[in-house]
Nucleic acid binder design. Sequence first.
DNA 1: CGGAATTTGGAATATATGTTCTATTTTGCT
DNA 2: AGCAAAATAGAACATATATTCCAAATTCCG
Lengths: 270, 270
Amino acid sequence: MQERVPATITQFEERLIDVSDSLPKRLRQCAEYVAANKDRIAVSTVAEMAEGAGVQPSAFMRFCRILGFSGFSEMQRLFRDSYSGGWPDYSTRLKNLREKAEGTPFALLAEFVDVGRASLENLLKTIDAKTLDDAVEALAKAQMIHIIGLRRSFPVASYIAYAFEKMNVPAMLHSGVGGLDNHNAIRPGDVLLAVTFSPYAAETIEMVEAVSSRGIPVVAMTDTIVSPLRKFDAITLSVSEVDFGAFRSLSATLCLAIVLSVAVGTKRSE
Amino acid sequence: MQERVPATITQFEERLIDVSDSLPKRLRQCAEYVAANKDRIAVSTVAEMAEGAGVQPSAFMRFCRILGFSGFSEMQRLFRDSYSGGWPDYSTRLKNLREKAEGTPFALLAEFVDVGRASLENLLKTIDAKTLDDAVEALAKAQMIHIIGLRRSFPVASYIAYAFEKMNVPAMLHSGVGGLDNHNAIRPGDVLLAVTFSPYAAETIEMVEAVSSRGIPVVAMTDTIVSPLRKFDAITLSVSEVDFGAFRSLSATLCLAIVLSVAVGTKRSE
DNA sequence: CGGAATTTGGAATATATGTTCTATTTTGCT
DNA sequence: AGCAAAATAGAACATATATTCCAAATTCCG
């Protein structure tokens, strides 16, 4: 019985198939129940799993052992971690890496590549297809698209402005150069695309507020659902990105920005 | 604080938005972390959630109470019950998504997420650790760092400028606002960080040429080794990004930009 | 600036949950 | 049927985890 412990869900499944032919009654019940309810492993206790399978907890424990784990906890950990890729505390990892002088730039790079990948995967899970459709729809109908995004969000805003220009979409980037406000450039029939992340730039919030009260549609790219933009009835695309200190890996945000640009550009030229 | 306990995820979100305006510091951290990682609640312990939010477990407990639960366990139960598991794993999900949602913005998102991931993976393979070290070294020694990146590279340049500012690194972004050149701001002891990708912006090349001939060190972020910047003896970090149509997913480039910023910022403060 | 109220950190405690052990039952074999 | 080996149930035990409590720090107000 000294097989090595499954390290991935796939290995787990293979092992499950392997053993399931030579199993006594109770353990077979476990195998069948687990096969049919893999997704419950991450969120259940042994007692619950055992009851579901119609066996005693101790029987279920033996079952875990046969699969190669030291116990139920170890098996559960596999499922808990592999759900959502497991990006628990990148920000502390990065902080440590940065503080410890031993962190070479290359190690830092590896870490950030990983963060970016996790963020991208997560993006697919958290973006709601319907909301994305609505956003594209609203922007495609706009006479002119106004873009605002300051400080840490400015790279995103400027990227979108560039992409729109390349796709012949009328757009205006409100960068605040020279402290000019240009609020009056925003007119009925236009749409505002606002990008802001914690700590939210006051100017952005103000602009959304002003524009929203005039009945002009707003599409927002922001983090989480507790963003202050929630107060106004904007179409909100929330992107959660790993950040630490002042830094934010913008992978997911920029990815969404490209998608918006391309989708809107395509739709308008139809 | 005797509100009734949220019975659905939607109610939970509403409650979260309700309270999140009137929350002290630590509890606000909890709210933000939870909003960004709702999916982790089902499979984490209080200790893990607390660590993720950067607070003590006891603080997280108070947070659960404010949301209307008797404790963390009750809140977790809500998420465990409505947990359906996001399997099968990433690659198959992506494939399904693309086939099923063909032509929709969401399919486009899946496409770009994949492109981004590929670019990031590729970055690790193509960046040379030694060159990266040299670049960090050169930038860390600079009196002042001048940053240039125009058109499609501008988001990257502006990101770097922001990051340097936050890390108290003296830096100047040459954005060309108003057609002013500011060549004379670049002085001996300074370093130029140039970002450019095909089709290379003439202004950037010119600046590199001018500066380089004055004996001022240049660090370049560019694509491939055939970039025109090769002519000048700059420290060249080449990033090959996967293109999708006319658009460039900047994931890898921005990732490298963050790494440079953080590494340089850290090194200077040693 | 000083005192009250709130918020916070950390250790102490309670509880739930996983794990092990052993007597008993079942199964397989001759 | 009778014996040995394997499997099982259930209780006892160990550990991980949630929860509470209170002193210290902070913020708020007059």
